[in-house]
Design a binder for these strands. Structure first.
Lengths: 215, 215
DNA sequence: ACCTGAACACCGTTCAAGT
DNA sequence: ACCTGAACACCGTTCAAGT
């Protein structure tokens, strides 16, 4: 995924679309140097602009991070949907496992995005009435909605025992979320480093959860 | 939990036990100002020492963070053990739920420690031959061992269907780990903010998992 | 052996000034 | 309306020098 950052022409005074360029620069920094490498100043430099210029477009660093996280959520949702579609099946259990695989796979391929999406910084402020964070929240709901939709239809069609849709979906989410973080933060000491290992584990987890929630 | 940091006496030249004082200062900063507030310079100031002094005791910031994480793991293990003991039961399902409750409760009460323990920074270096990180790793294994021990005895005694002890334990860990982070990072929008809510959720999760792994 | 002070290369953020 | 340059208060880290 080669990320292109539109630089300001040195002779020009205005950039044109600095906001977008800064988000792209942020994604690039995240991918190449990780969370620690994501700074407002470095993003400004990539866009060919002074370090104070970003403040015309983002209130603070958190606002840029929120914009990046929104893109990240879209990618995460896409990763889950792709696995489900590749399946070409209507089986609820298989779909749930596929979604989980898509989730964990995304985290492993893009740990920088993943940590940024779910990191501490962005969300606490989301309670404030801030239009920028509302769309971030919506992107998050859409990602969760993939899992929730499967659980909901599974219960409606009688494949899953009826119960609290949110609680069951949250359990599935917690399971893949926890696994993803334990892996990318290195707590599993490289025990899960191939796609096959991820598949084995998510399928195993899926089997446990499904026995617990199936009719 | 009032944390005491031994300050160097201004007239003295040496501190006496600066290493320990820096760890205490770090725990204090973490508790009061969160992960972002934990800096080597601030810890040095709390200990009444110049900002360069810590480097006599810790190779870099990561080494201090690792020392703090080790203390954090001990507290996490204690939180799980306390819930299990309060139970006074030998029932495997109840013990598993109690351990999960202890895990999530600790994360909610000490989000700063929790994030530090499991954060990105510390562990990647753990693969290097570094004696300081070996004891950190051991502290982590002990925490995981609480869950693993319950699963292992459950299988041995026939309460849980026999299978891969590590995989089932890892599923339990992922479940409480994911839930903890989703809550403290604010993704559940305050839906789980009381001890009763935590209990309800961990018990619900426990029921699902247990139906999935019980005989 | 342990600590200090100055220095360097970074941060985020603000603000007067320039175009 | 948008951007720059200097400034401020922070970082982590290094290193010669002091005790």
């Amino acid at each position: 995924m080669a990320i292109r950052v539109t630089r300001k022409r040195p002779d020009a005074y205005q950039h044109g679309d600095l906001r977008r360029a800064l988000v792209q620069a942020g994604l690039k920094l995240l991918g190449e140097r990780g969370v620690a490498g994501l700074s407002l100043r470095a993003a400004a430099e990539l866009a060919g602009v002074s370090h104070a210029a970003p403040y015309r477009h983002f209130r603070d660093k958190g606002a840029l991070v929120a914009a990046i996280a929104e893109e990240g959520f879209t990618l995460l949702t896409g990763s889950m949907r792709r696995e489900i579609e590749a399946l070409g099946s209507r089986d609820v259990s298989a779909k749930l496992r596929a979604a989980g695989r898509g989730y964990v796979t995304f985290a492993l391929r893009h740990p920088g995005y993943f940590r940024t999406i779910f990191g501490e910084k962005i969300w606490p402020d989301a309670s404030e009435a801030d239009p920028g964070r509302a769309s971030l929240r919506a992107a998050g709901e859409e990602a969760f909605g993939v899992l929730r939709g499967i659980v909901e239809s599974g219960m409606r069609e009688g494949w899953l025992r009826s119960g609290d849709v949110d609680q069951v979906s949250l359990a599935a989410w917690s399971l893949v979320h926890g696994l993803s973080l334990l892996i990318i933060d290195g707590h599993l000491a490289g025990r899960v480093d191939t796609d096959a290992a991820v598949r084995g584990l998510t399928d195993g987890f899926g089997a446990m959860l499904e026995r617990g929630i199936a009719t």
